[in-house]
Design a protein around this nucleic acid. Sequence first.
DNA 1: AACGATATTCAACACTGTGTTGAAATACCT
DNA 2: AGGTATTTCAACACAGTGTTGAATATCGTT
Lengths: 204, 204
Amino acid sequence: MPKSDHRIRVTKMLIRRAFTELLRTKPIQSISVKELCETAGINRGTFYAHYTDIYDLLKKMEEEMLVDFQQALRPLLEVHEGGITPAKITAGIFQCLKENADICTVTLGPFGDKEFAARLIRIGRDNYVESYQRFFKGATPRQLEYYYAFVSAGCIGMLERWLAEGMHTSAEEMADMAEKIMMYGIGFLRGEEAGGEVKADYPV
Amino acid sequence: MPKSDHRIRVTKMLIRRAFTELLRTKPIQSISVKELCETAGINRGTFYAHYTDIYDLLKKMEEEMLVDFQQALRPLLEVHEGGITPAKITAGIFQCLKENADICTVTLGPFGDKEFAARLIRIGRDNYVESYQRFFKGATPRQLEYYYAFVSAGCIGMLERWLAEGMHTSAEEMADMAEKIMMYGIGFLRGEEAGGEVKADYPV
DNA sequence: AACGATATTCAACACTGTGTTGAAATACCT
DNA sequence: AGGTATTTCAACACAGTGTTGAATATCGTT
């Protein structure tokens, strides 16, 4: 039982390549199935054999990326109490995004899909929030909500800028910056490394 | 010379009302001009007399919102050195968004437009970045870039959550939270009000 | 109130893209 | 090499697009 026919893989590869190529020049809403198939060099009927429409294609591509994303995070999260710092987790995230740059530059780019970013955020959410909650009992749930809304969107914003600039900075350095901004806010710009209490109290 | 015919205003109002109504139920990409005109109760030809397509309509609605946005910010920015705190500016921003909730819930919502959020960010950018640069000479330009990318996206993220929750929190409180997160990072959750040096050194 | 000007309606048009069909051709895997 | 699965191809009905011109309704002004 051939899990994946060679022809199918080729077809899907052609479709996806053509799709990302088109997305570099125009927003998704003005890409038609017809045009996509012509640039991919495949028959239109073949497209419909695999996807229902353009947005279905996008969704499935994102899906596969998110599987990678989850897999990249899992080993980091499993140890959890075994000396893994939040910085390392964050670095792992950036690294994973870097490895999937071709898709991410599109889905996180100016013509990208908001929902995709939202899902990236949601994946991180459950892992981070509970750690926070344990260590900041004084904070109200609403404050926690908004803090997470802020920093998650903030990380996405950094990621977008990073991708837009060709990812010259290393994943580790990006993670380090993100971590520090989350920890110290604007203190980050003052090279505030030894934050004292705040850092010490943060879950390891 | 009548600057705006009464009929035109009525037509545009009907179109926009129908548009936001439809956007509450389905993503923009599956709204056709035909359907829009039917729910608006106007002729399809009339739509094309004012807009070229659905996205043109969205763009023009966003445009008007951004004019409001700019106007709401200008008085705050003009004084600039006269005792206006960043907190007040931020509160003004949240207030403006709240007044344009009908459009913003759409353009910043899950089916919304990334470019719109990006433009909101860009408007704030020029005003904030130079203030930062003046006071944080130790920071590299890249650090400034990424710090701004982080906090601007962070604010948008908070805004989105705020809109999604029906804006029950006051604009002032939102601004206060945003401000503190930007200043103290996670220290915000520990009720860190008297940040000492950091706050004192921050531009007024 | 009546005017010219302007906006909207309406029906019709050609056109593009959609999504599906069945049969033929092609490539796959064992 | 053979049976199977995939792709191709032409054709189809269908829905939405964007534009047209003439008729109608509404406007601002005198």
